[in-house]
């Protein structure tokens, strides 16, 4: 039995060290907001924060996490940047099917926390690892700017 610090709570779980965090979250802990899209760090659907940094949980062995703080889409609303991003996402109606959006929001929240006033190149650098098959990119860009302007 091991523990993880997720969204400020301590969670016990039982899983091998090499199991990616994604599957611990989804299949062991039932936290299904974090999505599986590719399993090879190419789509960003599985993005979570590790001590505030965005990481792709589909390739992150849970054994590497140790006592670092994990934030998932279920908890990112409790952070200032996360809340702003979620609000902007709704204000501009970014989302279509929504499957990629947990990851998009996590990446955007990490971007805003590190770069409060991102320009287009900052957005590209932080968001290009997140694929949206529904093509919501135009609104993602606008919503990040909107969130940034609501400091």
């Amino acid at each position: 039995m091991a523990t993880l610090k997720i969204n400020g709570e301590t969670k016990d779980f039982d899983a091998p060290d090499d199991m990616p965090l994604l599957w611990v979250l989804r299949d062991v802990l039932g936290m299904t907001g974090t999505k599986y899209g590719c399993g090879i760090a190419q789509c960003g659907a599985c993005t979570v924060h590790l001590d505030g940094q965005p990481v792709r949980s589909c390739l992150l062995p849970v054994g590497e996490v140790r006592d670092r703080a994990i934030t998932t889409i279920e908890g990112v609303g409790a952070t200032a940047a996360g809340a702003k991003v979620q609000k902007a996402w709704l204000d501009l109606e970014v989302i279509q099917c929504g499957y990629c959006q947990s990851g998009q929001i996590m990446s955007a929240a990490a971007l805003l926390a590190a770069t409060p006033n991102p320009d287009d190149a900052d957005i590209d650098a932080a968001m290009a690892g997140n694929i949206c098959r529904c093509g919501t990119y135009v609104r993602i860009r606008a919503a990040i700017k909107r969130a940034a302007s609501e400091a």
């Binding site: 760090a41 792709r56 992150l60 290009a128 690892g129």
Partner: peptide, 14 residues
């Protein structure tokens, strides 16, 4: 690339 290798080159994953 950045998702795995990170901008620093020090992978957060492995």
């Amino acid at each position: 690339c950045a998702s795995c290798h990170s901008w620093t080159g020090q992978s957060p994953l492995t």
